[in-house]
Structure formats: structure tokens, C-alpha cells
């Protein structure tokens, strides 16, 4: 199939126009997006994650994440039935290239994808001294890299280890929930690349989003609920040993 861009435009005007706005990359180009009409979160289904690392690679590609740092990563848990409190966890290179075979025998084994929880009461935005990180009106915790002074207080304040200092820009960096994609009607890079649907972008303000049905019918948990961060990264089938 060989098609020029012009042909695409001729053949599929509607799709092509949408694509134009996607590539133009300006919020004016997605005029239908209203900040006040969304409240973003994400659903992770532990029982579906196969630890392939597709999400980690996709995130790094989409967002140009520097080597050795992670906006998302995957952990592998081994929980012995004799010692629930002390799981054995590994995440070689953030699970970017998948996982080697298990070393431990028996017990309970599973993968846990991790990323920013886009907390509604985020401790990281609370501590920013200058207002360089914030939760947007549509519920995404973002960093203004033009304004960040690089003090790293937010990195200390995140209970989930989701932030790092980008060594090139010397500013704090984290998952943006692919803000440049979700504001254009696309899903996040990690969700797009996940082969099993273990990750689902969720718009909690949209009544027709399947998240509502899911939250009603499943026992859903967030990480470190005692931190009272208002985390919006919901886990289905999360084991109590995960921290």
C-alpha cells in the first residue's frame, strides 16, 4: 500500500483533518478539548500484565525519557506464602526489555506496572516552592519545565518514586499521562502499546467511560492508600504485599 499524503487527504478528509491537528500539536488545533470536562486517571489490571515491557519502551520513545530514568516501569513480585510481608521484587532496567525467568520457586508471582498516580491531593505539587508543578484542571499532574528551578523537593515528596531530575534539562520530570495525546483524543503511549489491555486510560468525568462500570463491579485498590494522596491510578487485583 503506497499512498502519498495528498491521497490520504483526498480519500479521507475527516480523518486527515483530525491528523493535521494531531501533528500541529497546538491546543488550538484540538479546539474541542475542554479542560473542565475531563478528570483523568488510569486503570491497571494486574491479572492482565505479562511484563513484556512494551509500555516502558513506548513511554521512553513517545516522551524521549532519558536512559536510566523512568516515567513508567514494571515490577515483578514474588510473594512467598510463608512470608507475605517481605516480597522479593525486581525490575531490571525498569522492565524495559522484559524479565528473565523467575529464580524463585513457588509462591505467588505477578507483575505490577507503576507510574505517576496523578494524585488529586498530590504531595509533590504541594511542596513545589515556586509553582512549577501543578495538577491541571483536568486532573493531570504536570511539570512546567520553563519554570522549574530543579530543587528536587517534589522528588523527595513523591511516595511512589515517580519523579526524577532530567539530567539534560536539569528540571523535574514525570509521567504527563501523555497530556499531548489525551488532549487530542488519543490514548497514552503506554496504553496504545500494551498488548493485553492491562492499562486503560480513564476519564472519570465522562459518564460513558467504561471505568465507571469497572469501578462499580471490581475490588479496586490504589497504592499506599494510607498516604491519602487521592491517587487516581486504580489497580485491579492488587496484592496487599505491593508497595
Amino acid at each position: 500500500m503506497n499512498m502519498s499524503r495528498r491521497q490520504v487527504l483526498l480519500l479521507l478528509p475527516a480523518a486527515a483533518v483530525a491528523w493535521e491537528s494531531i501533528l500541529a500539536g497546538t491546543p488550538e488545533a484540538s479546539p474541542n478539548y475542554k479542560l473542565t470536562e475531563h478528570w483523568w486517571g488510569m486503570l491497571v489490571d494486574i491479572s492482565k500484565c505479562i511484563g513484556c515491557g512494551n509500555c516502558v519502551r513506548a513511554c521512553a520513545t513517545e516522551n524521549n525519557v532519558p536512559e536510566g530514568y523512568f516515567r513508567t516501569w514494571v515490577e515483578r513480585y514474588h510473594v512467598s506464602d510463608f512470608n507475605q510481608a517481605e516480597p522479593v521484587v525486581d525490575s531490571p532496567d525498569g522492565g524495559k526489555e522484559g524479565f528473565p525467568p523467575m529464580l524463585e520457586e513457588g509462591g505467588k508471582n505477578f507483575f505490577v506496572p507503576k507510574m505517576c498516580n496523578h494524585c488529586a491531593d498530590s504531595p509533590c505539587t504541594q511542596v513545589c516552592p515556586v509553582g512549577a508543578t501543578f495538577i491541571s484542571p483536568d486532573g493531570v499532574v504536570l511539570v512546567d519545565k520553563q519554570y522549574c528551578i530543579g530543587c528536587r523537593y517534589c522528588i523527595q515528596a513523591c511516595p511512589y518514586g515517580c519523579r526524577f531530575l532530567n539530567p539534560k534539562t536539569e528540571t523535574a520530570e514525570k509521567c504527563t499521562l501523555c497530556y499531548h495525546r489525551i488532549t487530542k483524543g488519543l490514548t497514552t503511549a503506554c496504553c496504545e502499546a500494551c498488548p493485553t489491555g492491562a492499562r486503560q486510560l480513564a476519564d472519570l468525568k465522562n459518564p460513558s467511560d467504561p471505568i465507571h462500570e469497572f469501578l462499580r463491579t471490581h475490588a479496586v485498590q490504589v497504592l499506599k492508600p494510607h498516604m491519602a494522596t487521592g491517587a487516581k491510578l486504580y489497580y485491579n487485583g492488587l496484592d496487599g504485599s505491593v508497595r
Binding site: 515556586v130 509553582g131 522549574c148 528551578i149 530543579g150 530543587c151 528536587r152 528540571t171
Partner: peptide, 9 residues
């Protein structure tokens, strides 16, 4: 600081 020049913020 990563950006001392912005500390005045």
C-alpha cells in the same frame, strides 16, 4: 539547584 538563575521565582 538545576536552575539557580530561576531561584528568584
Amino acid at each position: 539547584l538545576g536552575h539557580p538563575e530561576r531561584s528568584f521565582e
